[in-house]
Design a protein around this nucleic acid. Structure first.
Lengths: 134, 134
DNA sequence: TAAACATATGAGCAACTGTTCATAAGTATA
DNA sequence: TATACTTATGAACAGTTGCTCATATGTTTA
C-alpha cells in the first residue's frame, strides 16, 4: 500500500495508544479492569450480539453488497448486476443484512432501494478493508 | 448508553461525513468512483479476505477470547478459565485467531502467552462493541 | 383487470463450523 | 529419565450457512 488515504490517517487517531492501558470496557458499560483483566466478562448476550454483528460482515456476497452500497443507495436489480449472482441469493442476503440493521430499505415504485443504515457500517467496512490492505 | 466514552468520541471523528460523498475506495487502492458507484468491484481476493477477517470475529467464543486479551496477554490456561469452555475448544479457536493474524503467541516456559497482534484488532473490537451498545 | 416487471420467500441440499473426546507433542522438575 | 503439567491436534458429529429452483407477493402500466 503506497500513500495512506485520508481515511487511514483519520483511523490512526482512534488507534494511538489505545491498547497500552485498558482501564474501562470500550463498550461504554463502565466495567473496570483490575490487574489488566476485567473482573468479569460482559453479559453473554452482549458478546453474542457483537459476534452476530461481525457475522453479518463475514460473507463475500454480503461484503460485495455493502461495498456497492458505500457509493449510495441501489435497487435490488442494480445490486444483483454488480454482485454477479442470482437475484434470489441477493435478496436472501439483503434480508440478513436488514435483520442485522446494516442496511435499510425504502420502496420507490416497483423498486426497493437499499442503503447502508448508518455511518457506523461504513466505518467498520473501511476499517476491515484498511486492515486487510496493510 | 449514558455518557459517551473517550473512545467513542474518538471514533466519532473518523465517521463524520464519511458516507456523504465517496470518491475513492477506502481500502487505499485508489479505485475511483463514477456516479456514486465504483466502476468495478475490488478483486475477488480482497473481498474474500475482508469477509474472512470479519469471520474471525464472528463467534462468541472467539469474541470472549479477544475481549479477555484486550487487557493484555494471557496463557491458554487463563483464557480457558475466563472463557468457560474446554481447553481444546479454546486451543482450536486460538489457532483460528492466529491464522487470521488477530493474535500472536509467545512461549513462556510451559505456558504459551497469547496477545492481540496489533491495535487494529483492538480498534475493530471496540468499534463492534460500540455499535452494538448504541 | 390482465400482463409485465421487481422483489421476497420457502424447501432442499451440499459445504462449512464449533464442539467434544481422546491423545500427541512440548517443557519443566524430581 | 520418569512424571506432571501445559498446549496442540485429529476424528467425529450436530448445527448452521448460503446457494439454487420454484413460486408467491407487490407494483405499475396497458
Amino acid at each position: 500500500m503506497s500513500e495512506p488515504t485520508a481515511l487511514e490517517k483519520e483511523a490512526g487517531k482512534i488507534v494511538e495508544g489505545a491498547c497500552a492501558s485498558l482501564e474501562a470496557c470500550p463498550c461504554g458499560c463502565n466495567r473496570e479492569a483490575t490487574a489488566g483483566l476485567f473482573a468479569e466478562m460482559p453479559d453473554e448476550e452482549l458478546l453474542f450480539d457483537v459476534a452476530d454483528l461481525f457475522k453479518a460482515f463475514s460473507d463475500t456476497t454480503r461484503i460485495k453488497i455493502l461495498f456497492a452500497l458505500m457509493g449510495g443507495g441501489l435497487s435490488v436489480g442494480d445490486i444483483t448486476a454488480v454482485v454477479g449472482c442470482t437475484q434470489s441469493a441477493v435478496s436472501h442476503q439483503l434480508r440478513t443484512l436488514k435483520q442485522a440493521r446494516l442496511v435499510k430499505a425504502t420502496r420507490d415504485g416497483k423498486n426497493v432501494i437499499y442503503a447502508l443504515s448508518d455511518d457506523h457500517v461504513y466505518t467498520m467496512l473501511a476499517q476491515g478493508m484498511t486492515h486487510v490492505c496493510e
